[in-house]
Amino acid sequence: MFLGMLLLVFILINLSLGSVDIPFKSVIQTLTGSNPSKESWQYIILDYRLPKAVTAILVGSGLSISGLLMQTLFRNPLAGPFVLGISSGASLGVALLVLGVSLFSGSLTGLAFSNIGIAIAASIGSLLVLSAVMLVARRVKNTMSILIIGLMFGSFTAAIISVLAYFSPAEKLQQYVFWTFGSLGNLGWNEISILGILFLLCVGLLITIIKPLNSLLLGENYAISLGVNLKRTRNLTLIITGILTGVITAFSGPIAFIGLAVPHLTKLIIKTSNHRILLPAVAITGAILMLISDTIAQLPTSEYTLPINAVTSLFGAPIVIWLLIKKRALN
């Protein structure tokens, strides 16, 4: 409840702060439907800042949910979409589509430039890397090794991308490079509704595995002894994370650390591991953190903006370092 109120506050803050200085009163007037003093303000709020805020909410909560799922599934507090190379997988999917298609054939070019095409490619890419990491993780139990493997997947995909880039025309390369910058304000309502529908679909699936996820907190063998269908739970979790990370990455570019950091921040605030409480809490915290990051990225009242990825890394990287140090202390 408290988190919900906080979310509302931050939505309002996010809507009222931006490059253009719009008085809070006008923001409220616009949102409540009465005409503000300037027409351009109405457009900026309703057609630029509002979609951006909605995107931030979907992206923030989606990535955070992915992170939480991975932490439970891998039984590893340092798991997350970015750290495990899942985002890199999505990037690879997009790179293969955008850069690869131009190399091999012209027939798919139409698909390559549509957002749907990019979304599908990113989802497949992230699912593939996720399954690969999952396979490796079953052989390697050590937390640190899995992280290093995730890192290696990241460098590996980066290497493939640079090879692809070397043979690609400049125009395609530019398109790809811009995509990697990550952004929230680029989506129209059409794209947001696609993102939103997939998000809701994933949340729907997610609700059905809350119970098995809770028993996974005891480890796989205990979960089975409690009647959990482990295969089904694992597959559903992989699919949900793959789609969420893939689609979000496709639409907004790779965004670092949110998926890893938010579940930990949430667990600091809320002292429970019950996914029934934790999942919505993580989703809301993720949304809030993303809204804050976006508000900072807009550098209110200046004409310039920062890449959103830079802002989330500023938040996220110190949290990872702190976690590693804390973990060392425990061992």
Partner: peptide, 28 residues
């Protein structure tokens, strides 16, 4: 079992409550 429980915020009560999972409804 002999295996260690993974790191989490589980409290003792929550942990024991997980024992009821075979009997609780779909959402626990």
């Amino acid at each position: 079992l002999t295996e260690r429980i993974p790191e989490s915020n589980l409290t003792v009560y929550e942990l024991i409550a997980l024992g009821r999972q075979p009997y609780t409804n779909w959402i626990g």
